[in-house]
Structures are given as C-alpha cells and as structure tokens.
C-alpha cells in the first residue's frame, strides 16, 4: 500500500532499528534453522515475509533485500527496478518518470536514508544487479545463512560464479550480504529449480559436479540425494570474497 510505504520511509529510523534487532535474532537462530533445515523453512518464511514486508514496504520479494541501504524504501517499486539511485528522468516535482502519480522511489529513499544512522553511508554503496533466480524466496533466511556462514568462515563451498560478482560489489556484499550471496542456496529458495540439476560450465571444466549438499554446515539437504552424492569435495583455492 502506497500510503503505508511512505509512512515506513518517514519512520525509517524506527523501522531500521526494528529490522536490525530482528536480523540479530534470525542470525542467532541459524543453528536451530540448520537443524530444522532451511529447505523446510523456506516456504513458511517466504509467506510470512511476503505478507509483513508487502504490507509495510510494498515488498516485491526480490529475495535480496537491501532495505537498510535504501532508506527503508523498496527499490523494486521503481518501474526501472533501479538498485542504485534515481534515473535521469525524475520529474521537476520529484515524481516518477514512468508513473507520474507516484513519488520517485529514490527521492523517498534518499530522504529516508538521511534520517537513518549510517543511512547515507549505506546508500552510497554500489549494489549488484538482482539475481532473478532468487525472486520469491525469503531474504530473511538468506541473511541468516550468509551472516552465519560468514561467522563460521565456511564460504569455500560457494559457487565460483557468485564469487566474481561478490568481489566486484565487495562493499555491498559486506553490508548487505543477501544482495551478493555466496553461501549454498537450498533448492526451495530458487525460482528456477531445474537450474541446479544441469551441469554448469564450471563443473565441466573441473570435471566434477559441484557439490555442497554433503557439507555438514550447509544444513540437512540430504533428502536431495543427487545434490550430495555425485561430486567430491568442492574445489580448493578459489578466490575468496
């Protein structure tokens, strides 16, 4: 809802604090989540997230939430899906070029960021393009996975293709790990489910199927035997983020 969205941006400071708290709780719950299985949690969390964030921020469930870097204004409401600031077409009154009845999402975002502690530092960080494979999945769980994985320093399991992006957008990765995720994604989090099953060029080069499911810190995804059983150990000595 447009009015609620504007309200949330005006209260960006409060919502950011709430969000930080919530994030800390979720990251702390990572061991429990791993025991239950991220695979199983994906659907209920996505449902919950869609509804709360949908109500508050008109969230579009890109799965790579960067709200605290965009003044608590969802950038996916920008008709051009811009993640890095306003385009050159903003109207003189500060409204959107494409939807003239709507305030420019980024005019709002910059206002919201100015009210947040560190808001202006964060909005200046270059965000990577959205990974469309993750659309519809829970960004909360992703943050939990990424931050917890970072704490465990268990990143060697990640897909090398994600490494280059995470390195190219290093700062964004630091402050919004879900925007450039490198940890293992459970199947349930991927909108294009079959994409995991085909052999990627990296695997072909390495002569082995990429395998992450058998790693204990990745959580019980053993109910997908083809994930865990084919390959050997993940490649060593890849670029670290």
């Amino acid at each position: 809802m447009y009015a609620v969205r504007l309200f949330a941006t005006r209260r960006s400071r409060f919502f950011q604090r709430l969000y930080r708290l919530f994030e800390a709780v979720i990251v702390a719950l990572d061991p429990l989540f791993r025991r239950i299985g991220y695979e199983r949690l994906e659907a209920p969390f996505a449902f919950l997230e869609r509804n709360t964030k949908g109500f508050l921020f008109d969230c579009k469930m890109c799965g790579q939430c960067v709200l605290s870097s965009t003044g608590m204004t969802c950038p996916m409401n920008c008709p051009k899906n811009l993640r890095n600031g306003p385009c050159g077409g903003v109207r003189g009154n500060g409204n959107c070029e494409v939807r003239p009845w709507m305030r420019c999402v980024w005019v709002e975002a910059w206002d919201g960021a100015a009210r947040m502690p560190e808001g202006l530092d964060r909005i200046r960080v270059v965000q990577p393009p959205v990974n469309r494979e993750l659309e519809g999945s829970s960004s909360w769980l992703r943050v939990a996975r990424e931050k917890a994985a970072e704490m465990r320093e268990a990143r060697q399991s990640a897909d090398p293709s994600k490494h280059m992006l995470a390195r190219a957008f290093r700062k964004a990765r630091e402050i919004e790990p879900a925007a450039a995720p490198v940890a293992f994604e459970p199947d349930a989090a991927l909108s294009v489910q079959w994409s995991r099953q085909r052999t990627s060029v990296y695997d072909a080069e390495a002569g082995q199927e990429k395998s992450v499911g058998d790693k204990p810190e990745e959580g019980p995804v053993g109910d997908k035997p083809e994930e865990g059983s084919i390959g050997g150990k993940p490649k060593k000595g890849k670029e670290q983020v």
Binding site: N81, Q127, P128, P129
Partner: peptide
Amino acid sequence: FDFDALSLLRTLRTMRDEGAFLSGR
C-alpha cells in the same frame, strides 16, 4: 532493466580490470 547504470558500470570495469565476465569466466 536487468542492470542499472551503476551495476553496468561496475560490471564493465570488472571486465576491463579483472579480465572476467561477471560470472567469473
């Protein structure tokens, strides 16, 4: 609008300076 102007810039800089596609190839 898969990229925006900034993620496009960063990608092209990565191609030029790191000699790789955004995919790492």
